[in-house]
Design a protein around this nucleic acid. Structure first.
Lengths: 334, 334
DNA sequence: CTGAAAGCGCTTACAG
DNA sequence: CTGAAAGCGCTTACAG
């Protein structure tokens, strides 16, 4: 292994102290009034020797690693992988790297991941909390750790977050189904105490309530890899004219069930999906869906986290509006 | 911010030196023959004070960070996000964290990412190289940096890799189209000097050559966000009976074109896709595809990297076989 | 069995 | 304008 070039090597070559080299490497030569020729010599030597600063040593000294930790439910889920990509790009703009972990919606795992990340001295965290992570989030706030929740929050914890206006999203979607003449509308959601899920359900309930229709919420257990049976039951319920799904995974599982059971959409069953998916484009007919503003969410989360890392203690909470992308799966044919 | 508990604090509380605390925290109490009661006291104090070791300090001293860098083309591409998830899980088994970066198939970006990762002192790298990254890879090998290429390699560089047996994958797929009675088979690939792409094309060429059919390879420019026009042209070519795609992005772009132009599959055009995708399940008819053994690839890559990090200098090259998942899009109807 | 001390590679008051 | 030296929080020969 080629010997690592140290700041000391440059100092020796140029014939100055390591302090000056450090100043120049960090662009503080003006502030520290380092002599012009010295600056040039140091720059040249650094380049010639291909000096690469050891960030670990720097981090230990400065107390900041220029690294953020990102905990999502599952990086292989397209919703989270797209979000991760946006967060990566935005963080890079601030010279930050991203360490990613998947919690699998298990609070034990997210807790363990967060501890690992903190031991690695990440400067801040962007967290998609799992059920039961309120304890973790409280403890992070108590410890003054820069934190932004994304996609989800806890109603009774005052914490930075960036998330969808979930209530409005499903309220509007339900209303569109109602406007299109559907009465027997079922909402399919995960059984969860998490706010975002409850808000999505509440949006549906309010819309149904506003016109006095009977509500029907079907709750699917999370962590069940086999969604086939419950989904078939839900889809085949003769008392359902339209289904609104609460997440992308549920939507796609639902579409598999519809397809498996050869139901005609929207004649036999109208459908509104959640999140964007290529599957919605290929389904016959194209599926109407609730699209989240991923780019804005990811960018805002990073920006808020940076504020937080830089000492802004104000509460930053952003609720973003979804876009209702209307196609043919929710339209009663005349 | 609650004051961080240091190893020194525990030493003070228990009334021993920091050395003993360090030994116990690292499970070396047997080896170092630390007194039993002392061990207990240290353990208790560590727990009571909720001691969390500062990995940065540890890393600076030991020279290893227990972190690996993963550079993929784009983490939001399902192929890479699935791979990333597997790599994450496998790395965690070895107590390693993963820092991820997306290169966008640009060697400038992958170079910059790799430097950033090395400055952060990652113990090793798993890299999906871009065109032109042979220079980078050579330099990494020269610098003795633990490295495993994944998904792609360079023929003239002797480097660890884990990848698909690409030649066999497309040879077999092409043969299946030939066996099903197709003669005018087109392969759609990216214009690239990368081995994996050339092998995929060569597999096709060999199969076609073996039966003496005229070949037709359509090369699409990478980095072109707008695949619409070239894909429409390719798909609508009246001289094409069947199309074999070289990647998942090409496959899906192709399916959009097929769908946009209302071609009947496989009557008007037979199709074989690359990689797995939910889109293939919903397309009518279900699309036949070449599936890569993602789990094995990711696990093997991490295992090989660990060997490498632990000083195994032997060359580790794994070519894995794909699975041909046959459905209806490649079968001539009788 | 245990402690004092050096050192990982930086940054940064401090002194001149 | 520049240098000597302390210190970030660990680990680890070394000495006893």
């Amino acid at each position: 292994m080629a010997k690592k070039v140290l700041i000391k090597d440059i100092a020796t070559v140029v014939g100055v102290s390591t302090a000056l080299v450090s100043y120049v490497m960090n662009g503080r030569e003006k502030e520290k009034r380092v002599g012009k020729e010295v600056v040039e010599k140091i720059r040249k030597a650094a380049k010639d020797l291909n000096y690469q600063p050891n960030q670990i040593a720097r981090s230990l000294r400065t107390g900041s690693t220029n690294t953020i930790g990102l905990v999502v439910a599952d990086i292989s889920n397209p919703f989270f992988s797209h979000l991760a990509r946006i967060i990566e790009d935005e963080a890079n703009k601030y010279q930050y790297a991203v360490i990613i972990g998947s919690s699998d919606e298990r609070n034990q795992k997210s807790q363990a991941l967060v501890e690992t990340l903190l031991n690695r001295q990440v400067d801040g965290l962007i967290l998609v909390p799992s059920e039961g992570d309120d304890v973790l989030v409280k403890s992070l706030i108590d410890r003054d750790i820069p934190l932004v929740l994304i996609d989800r929050n806890f109603e009774n914890i005052s914490c930075n977050f960036v998330m969808l206006n979930n209530y409005k999203a499903t309220f509007d979607a339900t209303m569109s189904l109602i406007d299109n003449g559907y009465r027997k509308i079922t909402m399919v959601a995960y059984r969860s105490s998490l706010e975002h899920m409850k808000s999505r359900i509440n949006g549906y309930l309010s819309a149904m309530g506003s016109v006095g229709y009977t509500v029907s919420v079907k709750l699917v257990e999370p962590h069940v890899s086999e969604l086939l049976h419950p989904m078939d039951e839900i889809i085949l319920n003769s008392d359902t004219e339209a289904v609104l799904f609460a997440t992308n995974t549920l939507s796609i599982a639902g579409l598999y069930a519809v397809s498996r059971n050869h139901l005609k959409v929207p004649e036999q069953l109208a459908i509104v999906g959640f999140d964007k998916s290529e599957v919605y484009d290929f389904f016959v007919p194209p599926v109407t869906y609730i699209e989240q503003p991923l780019a804005e969410m990811g960018q805002k989360a990073v920006q808020n986290l940076m504020e937080c890392i830089n000492g802004n203690n104000g509460l930053m909470q952003n609720s973003l509006d979804s876009q209702f992308v209307e196609r043919l799966s929710n339209k009663k044919l005349l």
